[in-house]
Design a binder for these strands. Sequence first.
DNA 1: GGTAGACCTGGACGC
DNA 2: GCGTCCAGGTCTACC
Length: 321
Amino acid sequence: MPRFSVPVPADFRLWRDCCSYGYFLLAPNTWDVDTQTLTRGLRVASGPVSVSVSQEHGAGEPLRVTTDRAVAAAERADISRQLTRMLRLDEPRDLMREFHKADPRWKRVGRGRLFRSPTMFEDVIKTVTSCNVTWPSTVVMNRRLCEVLGEAVGDTHTFPTPAKIARTRPATLRARCRVGYRDARIVELARLFMLPRSRGGVEPVWFEHPATPDDAVHDALLELPGIGPYAAANIMQLLGRYTRLPLDTESVRHGRTVLGMKGETKAMMKRMHEHYRPFGVHAFRSYWFELWEFYERKHGPAHTWERDSTGKMFTAALLSK
DNA sequence: GGTAGACCTGGACGC
DNA sequence: GCGTCCAGGTCTACC
């Protein structure tokens, strides 16, 4: 199997930083608990390729990347770029320091990076499939999207491209991918990712550019079909903009059981926003790692979770039991 | 600006 | 095994 290395920051640990957000359990991502390896299909110029990532030793050791076929040097660079986005290998060091200064609870364990997808498009679709649905359904939707519309490669798939979904009939998405009423919205989102910003389309470069103000990104996200306040705030954090909180019923459970808050849902949400406001531009990470720690206390370290057993557990309804 | 109800799926529950 | 109820965020119609 062809193999190459990807350098990482000195504080990077694959088992911790990959298993830091629920998307590591969603197809086409597969986390092998026994070998502590992440495998999935990625697209490069010559077509789909199955990529496995592991880290032999401790923090700072380069990633060992294995592909199921030979890839050109430029394609290895492309794979590195996609892994860098997923694992946030380029998270600015001073921003991590600032976060740990603002919330020292996570300095010792080194938490700071949040797993995401190789593209903004995949992050947006994953967010839409997590809205108004329990986690096991989100798992099914992503698996079927990949199996039906992604490209099979090795034992895995790629995530479907905007072009592929844009060509798919909503009824097909509903019937074969079990996305329910989200069908037309997902197809419309895919079409928007095919259009330039001048024609009302979504250009990830604009959303990801540091010079684009948070408010502008937020407003633009709310214009998209299927994206409301929760989804917009969640996509913001996936874009590395951590000021806003994507609060949902799970957040309310956290407020009640962990923070000891009381009251109706609406009042609780307001109090949650106030509670994390002092963390400023780091608010989401402070909130999320608190939530994640609760999950890990309940079910063990995330790097030991299996997608089809423990990985199905973390929903508000199941955790409140 | 705020609110009620529909949207769809899968799991829980009662019979 | 079947029917009913419920959770979940967004969208639209309505006040």
